[in-house]
Design a protein around this nucleic acid. Structure first.
Length: 206
DNA sequence: CCCTGATTCGC
DNA sequence: GCGAATCAGG
């Protein structure tokens, strides 16, 4: 079999997908390729996410015989491309009322500021997962991403606790999946581990 | 070259 | 149903 895709994984896929993580990122966390993620997402019906391209309907096999058959390309005569008239220096940029996303990544930077203390604690806190010898390449990139000063806005938790169990990148790795506390990415149980006070955190965390 | 997601198609 | 291969845009 290629992949289990248990309710667990699917739920997590949905969750991460909703969080706006990239397919590759989701794949990494689920230990599958981005292709698998995208493919599954399609089959699940969830999809609408900003895509960098809008691939023109292409039929990979043009069937070398039925070419002339299909025609009627509703190509419209290119309208006059008004050359970008550089607005005067005074031209103020129009504030778009709806600016969904930027460049694929970088989910909305909304909320997240609901718990400053938590953020602080998180920095000092010992990472829940023990580091295992990572392969390389993507691990390096992942690490770099993890070290990035301010990023990973990470949408508020949805329906499953994100506490990692096992070794990311290895089979068997999974997230807790329990119902998280309101506004938190972890369930009550794991929130205690995650949001431990600095002074008290010396001996817990396995 | 890196990234992104989208689609196709053999399995 | 799955996902590698491939495509296509940034």
């Amino acid at each position: 079999m290629a992949m289990e895709w248990t309710e667990e994984t699917i739920a997590r896929l949905r969750d991460l997908w909703q969080q706006g993580l990239s397919t590759a990122e989701i794949g990494r966390q689920l230990s599958v390729t981005k292709n698998a993620v995208v493919g599954k997402a399609h089959r699940l019906g969830l999809k609408p996410r900003p895509s960098p391209i809008r691939r023109a309907a292409r039929t990979v096999t043009p069937a070398p015989g039925a070419e002339a058959a299909v025609t009627a390309p509703p190509v419209q005569p290119a309208p006059p491309k008004a050359d970008v008239a550089p607005a005067p220096a005074v031209a103020p940029p129009q504030p778009e009322p709806a600016a969904p996303v930027a460049t694929a990544e970088a989910p909305r930077p909304d909320v997240t500021a609901t718990e400053p203390p938590v953020a602080a604690a998180r920095q000092e806190e010992t990472p829940p997962e023990p580091r295992a010898p990572r392969p390389s390449a993507r691990a390096t990139r992942a690490a770099a991403a993890a070290l990035r000063p301010v990023s990973e806005p990470r949408r508020r938790s949805s329906q499953s606790c994100c506490w990692p169990l096992g070794d990311p990148g290895t089979p068997g790795f999974h997230f807790c999946g329990a119902t998280p506390l309101p506004g938190k990415p972890y369930c009550a149980e794991h929130a205690q581990l995650a949001y431990v006070k600095l002074r008290d955190r010396r001996d817990n965390v396995a």
